[in-house]
């Protein structure tokens, strides 16, 4: 997909995010908006996904013969749900059920309701990288050459389990795994370096044995180029970690440059102000 087309999808996904969160007056718009460009780039361009004869995506829990994506920071479920729906995993109309009773779109991603595209629950932080490691290990044992992607938050790097997985993955030479850290520098209680300073995450991952790349996660051209570079670096003995600089709330001016929209829903006026900044490119749900 051309980057202008990816831009269109991203704009619609951002509209979906603010509308979903507004619709239920809860959820996490900030990180969702910040990671929109990455998820759109992955699902609409970079990932090799299973499709049928009509070229529609087909969800297979096993993920065999295709690339897999794991969302470790499950609270940014709005962006994942929107991208999955827009990519064709389930009807776009279902986005209206987000966080409501009897919905498949739980507050945090879950498998119990069998939502296509979700392979494991996430929400309690720090666990996704381990699950991705298991999936990548499974691909090695099954001799499946496809890749496993995993997105984590930067606040989430404070969880100890992340560093258990960060040791395990290079030690086991899982060079079919590409991890992202959403480096937006914000978490619920304030700036990440004030709450609990992560120091230099790139150097940390390097010290653990990863190949580390950096990118501007809100620049579709840079995302495409870095994903290409990461794929080329895969299969060479080391896993790849991409430190992805993003702006929490990207695309909605009043949600940017603050941690305040981490987990807050816009009211009616704020919704209108947000939507005025985001083109409706694919039709609202």
């Amino acid at each position: 997909m051309k980057s202008t087309d990816l831009e269109k999808v991203a704009s619609q996904v951002r509209r979906d995010i603010v509308r979903m969160v507004h619709g239920v007056a809860s959820g996490h718009p900030g990180g969702s908006l910040g990671c929109t460009d990455l998820l759109v780039s992955l699902y609409f361009e970079a990932m090799d996904l299973k499709t049928d004869e009509q070229d529609s995506v087909v969800f297979d829990m096993s993920g065999s013969g295709e690339d897999m994506f794991f969302l470790s920071n499950g609270h940014i479920s709005p962006v994942l749900y929107s991208v999955l729906a827009r990519r064709g995993y389930f009807p776009v109309s279902e986005l209206a059920t987000f966080r409501k009773l009897d919905s498949r779109l739980q507050g945090h991603p879950a498998t119990a309701e069998h939502l296509p595209g979700i392979r494991i629950a996430s929400g309690s932080l720090g666990q996704g990288l381990s699950a991705a490691a298991g999936a990548a290990y499974g691909k090695k044992l099954r001799k499946d050459p496809h890749l496993v992607y995993c997105l984590m938050g930067d606040g989430e790097q404070q969880e100890g389990q992340i560093w258990e997985a960060a040791s395990f993955i290079p030690h086991r030479q899982l060079d079919n795994l590409i991890a992202f850290v959403d480096f937006n520098g914000q978490q619920i209680d304030g700036p990440t370096d004030v709450v609990l300073n992560n120091r230099d995450l790139g150097k940390k991952y390097e010290a653990f044995g990863w190949t580390v790349l950096h990118m501007d996660g809100n620049d579709l051209t840079d995302v495409a180029a870095t994903l290409k570079k990461a794929k080329q670096a895969s299969g060479k003995g080391s896993p790849i970690c991409i430190i992805m600089k993003t702006e929490m709330g990207q695309g909605v001016d009043f949600m940017m440059h603050t941690h305040k929209w981490h987990g807050t829903a816009p009211n009616n006026e704020q919704l209108a102000a947000a939507l005025a900044q985001l083109d409706e490119t694919l039709g609202d749900y």
Partner: peptide, 24 residues
């Protein structure tokens, strides 16, 4: 078919969960 995880039990449980996807 043996995966030594080291003294890192939390990761071991997550890795195990991820392994099930491919039918292991």
């Amino acid at each position: 078919r043996f995966i030594q995880c080291g003294i890192a039990e939390a990761n071991m449980i997550g890795v195990a969960a991820g392994l099930t996807l491919s039918g292991l």
